Amino acid sequence: MENIINRIAYLEGLAEGYEIDDESKEGRLIYELIDIIAEMAEEVKIYQDEMEEYVDIIEEDLSSLEEYVYDDFDEDYDSYDDFDFDDDFYFEEDLDDELEENCDCGHCNEEENN
């Protein structure tokens, strides 16, 4: 945004440096266009600043909400920290029994007969 404001100031200086007559039709048009562009840039800057403030407020609210939700979540599940869900040791026997009971390939039954 600062770059745009600097470029508008450059245009104003350029118009003055070329000694464009502000009483001529062309001069009035050029100066009026530069003024309109400058006002638009100021308005955009104001809205941008307001939007940044609004986003900051939303970020603060979201941070508070995350802290509230996740702090409570962490306290509720601390007792499960010692349990390793990826360890097949706890489920290995049950899985083998279930596979043998539901297997129709005939290979499992051959092993039992041999």
Rank of each mutant, 00 (worst) to 15 (best):
residue 1 M to Y: 03
residue 2 E to M: 03
residue 2 E to W: 01
residue 2 E to N: 12
residue 2 E to R: 14
residue 2 E to A: 08
residue 3 N to C: 06
residue 4 I to Q: 11
residue 4 I to K: 15
residue 5 I to E: 09
residue 5 I to K: 15
residue 5 I to A: 09
residue 6 N to M: 11
residue 6 N to K: 08
residue 8 I to M: 03
residue 8 I to L: 12
residue 8 I to V: 09
residue 9 A to F: 03
residue 9 A to M: 03
residue 9 A to W: 00
residue 9 A to T: 11
residue 10 Y to A: 11
residue 10 Y to P: 02
residue 12 E to L: 13
residue 13 G to E: 10
residue 14 L to V: 13
residue 15 A to L: 08
residue 17 G to A: 12
residue 18 Y to L: 12
residue 19 E to P: 01
residue 19 E to S: 07
residue 21 D to Q: 04
residue 21 D to E: 08
residue 22 D to A: 03
residue 22 D to G: 05
residue 24 S to H: 04
residue 25 K to C: 02
residue 26 E to R: 12
residue 27 G to H: 02
residue 28 R to H: 07
residue 32 E to N: 13
residue 32 E to Q: 14
residue 33 L to A: 14
residue 34 I to E: 02
residue 34 I to R: 02
residue 35 D to K: 14
residue 35 D to I: 00
residue 35 D to W: 00
residue 35 D to P: 02
residue 35 D to M: 05
residue 36 I to R: 13
residue 36 I to D: 11
residue 36 I to A: 13
residue 37 I to A: 15
residue 37 I to W: 02
residue 38 A to D: 09
residue 39 E to S: 15
residue 39 E to K: 10
residue 41 A to D: 01
residue 42 E to G: 06
residue 42 E to Q: 15
residue 42 E to P: 06
residue 44 V to G: 07
residue 44 V to P: 02
residue 45 K to I: 00
residue 46 I to C: 05
residue 47 Y to G: 14
residue 47 Y to K: 15
residue 47 Y to Q: 13
residue 49 D to W: 00
residue 50 E to V: 03
residue 50 E to Q: 11
residue 50 E to C: 06
residue 50 E to S: 07
residue 52 E to G: 05
residue 52 E to K: 15
residue 54 Y to R: 13
residue 54 Y to P: 02
residue 54 Y to L: 05
residue 54 Y to F: 05
residue 54 Y to M: 04
residue 55 V to K: 09
residue 56 D to G: 13
residue 57 I to T: 14
residue 60 E to A: 04
residue 61 D to P: 03
residue 62 L to I: 07
residue 63 S to A: 10
residue 63 S to Q: 10
residue 65 L to W: 03
residue 65 L to H: 02
residue 65 L to Y: 07
residue 67 E to F: 04
residue 67 E to C: 03
residue 67 E to S: 12
residue 68 Y to H: 14
residue 71 D to M: 06
residue 72 D to E: 04
residue 72 D to C: 01
residue 74 D to R: 11
residue 76 D to K: 13
residue 81 D to C: 06
residue 81 D to R: 14
residue 81 D to I: 11
residue 82 D to K: 11
residue 83 F to V: 06
residue 83 F to E: 05
residue 85 F to K: 09
residue 86 D to A: 13
residue 87 D to T: 07
residue 87 D to H: 06
residue 88 D to A: 15
residue 90 Y to V: 12
residue 92 E to L: 10
residue 94 D to K: 15
residue 95 L to Y: 09
residue 95 L to W: 10
residue 96 D to K: 11
residue 97 D to Q: 11
residue 97 D to H: 08
residue 97 D to F: 06
residue 98 E to C: 08
residue 98 E to S: 14
residue 100 E to V: 08
residue 100 E to T: 01
residue 101 E to F: 00
residue 101 E to Q: 10
residue 102 N to I: 00
residue 103 C to Y: 00
residue 103 C to S: 12
residue 103 C to G: 05
residue 103 C to N: 15
residue 104 D to V: 07
residue 105 C to P: 08
residue 105 C to M: 04
residue 105 C to K: 06
residue 106 G to Y: 00
residue 107 H to T: 07
residue 108 C to E: 12
residue 109 N to T: 09
residue 109 N to V: 02
residue 109 N to L: 04
residue 110 E to T: 01
residue 112 E to D: 09
residue 113 N to Q: 10
residue 114 N to C: 02
residue 114 N to Y: 03
